[in-house]
Design a protein around this nucleic acid. Structure first.
Length: 464
RNA sequence: GGCGACAUAGCCAAGCGGUUAGGCAGAGGUCUGCAAAACCUUUUAGAUCGGUUCAACUCCGAUUGUCGCCUCCA
């Protein structure tokens, strides 16, 4: 039985979809004005894995992840670059898809864009105005009147008085109440805009998610996910807008990923410790990055550092070393996995709010068993290798050819050809019982990060 | 100031009221021309102070500390 931690109740709950066997899920995607960073990667990978896992357990999952392609940051950046905002957003949407593909993230079922849903957005704002939840200000902005929605603050556990007293909120003159937030923003001179009953303008942040999620999945759906900084104000405001507009409960389960920190500091642009996915992929194999992201629980914060990425690499190397002789073994499919004791353990821990760390411990136990069996029973070992690959596939890991994973190196490193030549020299030296020369070659390669491993089948090599 | 989360061995990181988490690193061993990998054995735990209990790392309370959100941010 699957249990999910629900931000709304602050506890794990047994997952009960609205419709038996069917899951409707919406995750807040990117605002596309720059390259994806590690924080985006975490959300992308966490929910990719969650969706994969639910599908493996027989759920029919409709996974919607939006693209916010109109907003202040986008307009500002486009103005800085002196280009139309669509050109900017197109570029970063393409880049995002490239990054996703490299990280092995499967595409969502639907990927709605704010600019393609203006009619629904405007209709929802009109609905809110008509029903007294929102008002048009003199300047053409439309605001949501927070005090009109009794449940405001239920997700982030804030009460309205505290929001006012703690206020770091800037009070716009046009707002009736400092806590109100914009549903619609009037266009400034020369800005991209859409016609509306309140004049030319664009959607405020939050409303696009309410309109698109409702449009794609209906008034009430099962799971809504996002990054750690979204519960307030973004998701709180989504709840207010949606529930005020539809009169229905908006979402049953709220899921939020943990934060990414860098060298123990908050990752932020002002600290200059921001890493984009593509920067990181220049240094590390995509599976190393994915493993790093998956090897902690999705809700805990993780710390990006050189050491931790190297640790992730070491962990994967253990798996790939175990699988080295089984490169051509076909991974077990779901049906075949059903019979496996390890798979049952795996499912048990994953059912407990997607405990990937514990699931990886199962995989390590399996790797040990495989290493042991490979010395005594080739057939049993092959079966275990297929099982390990099958579990790895559920995580989007262990998909590479072991030999190529272990031998992958930087562009400026010594080439495979050069290594092979030196190995041939060394093999000859060994034949001649010239062990001094053989050891010299070993040391020479080691200095270049290449480890030699002698075996009955000959000398293998890998990079450290 | 308000709300919330977390404190586990050298490092990373889980579950669990009593029975080995796991990985990396360290030590010893088997194997090897030497190594590596692998396997076996093994050393370091549960912030502090109280309480509940036959029994607490695990439950309760307090203290201290770290962090997040409250403003754009995944």
């Amino acid at each position: 039985m699957l249990k999910i931690y629900n931000t709304l109740s602050r506890q794990k709950e047994t997952f009960q979809p609205l419709h038996e066997g069917k899951v409707n899920m919406y995750v807040c995607g990117m605002t596309v004005y720059d390259y994806c960073h590690l924080g985006h990667a975490r959300v992308l990978v966490a929910f990719d894995l969650i969706v994969n896992y639910m599908r493996s357990q027989g759920y029919d999952v409709t996974y919607v992840r939006n693209i916010t392609d109109i907003d202040d940051k986008i307009l500002n950046r486009a103005a800085e670059n002196g280009e139309p905002f669509e050109k900017l957003t197109d570029r970063f949407i393409t880049a995002m898809h490239e990054d996703e593909a490299k990280l092995g993230v499967t595409s969502p079922s639907m990927e709605p864009r704010a600019t393609e849903h203006l009619p629904e957005i405007i209709a929802m704002v009109e609905n809110l105005v008509e029903n007294g939840y929102a008002y048009a200000a003199d300047n053409g902005d439309v605001y949501f009147a927070v005090t009109k929605f009794a449940d405001y603050g239920k997700l982030s556990k804030k009460n309205l008085d505290e929001l006012l007293s703690g206020a770091r909120v800037e009070v716009a003159d046009s707002k009736k109440d400092a806590r109100d937030f914009a549903l619609w923003k009037a266009a400034k001179e020369g800005e991209a805009s859409w016609d509306s009953p309140w004049g030319p303008g664009r959607p405020g942040w939050h409303i696009e998610c309410s309109a698109m999620s409702t449009g794609c999945l209906g008034s009430t759906f099962d799971i809504h996910g996002g990054g750690p900084d979204l519960p307030f104000p973004h998701h709180e405001n989504e709840i207010a807008q949606s529930e005020a507009a539809t009169g229905q409960k908006y979402v049953n389960y709220w899921m939020h990923a943990g934060a990414v920190r860098v060298d123990d500091e908050k990752m932020s642009k002002s600290l200059g410790n921001f890493f984009t996915i593509r920067e990181i992929l220049e240094k590390y194999h995509p599976e190393v990055v994915r493993y790093f992201l998956v090897s902690s629980h999705y809700r805990s914060s993780i710390n990006y550092s050189e050491d931790h990425l190297l640790e992730a690499k070491a962990g994967l190397e253990r798996f790939y070393t175990a699988l080295r002789a089984y490169g051509d073994v076909v991974p077990l499919d779901l049906q075949a996995l059903e019979g496996s004791e390890n798979y049952r353990r795996f499912v048990t821990v994953m059912d407990d709010d997607f405990n990937t760390r514990e699931a990886i411990a199962v995989m390590f136990d399996l790797a040990r068993e495989l290493n042991t069996q490979s010395k005594v029973d080739a057939e049993a070992a092959k079966q275990l290798a297929a099982e390990l690959k099958g579990l790895g596939a559920l995580f989007g890991l262990l998909q590479a050819e072991p030999e190529s994973f272990l031998q992958a190196g930087a562009d400026d490193a010594i080439s495979a050809e050069q290594i092979e030549t030196l190995i041939a020299d060394r093999t000859q030296a060994k034949k001649d019982k010239n062990y001094a020369r053989a050891d010299e070659i070993r040391q020479e390669l080691l200095a270049q990060g290449v480890v030699l491993e002698d075996s009955r089948e000959g000398t293998k090599w890998r990079r450290e």
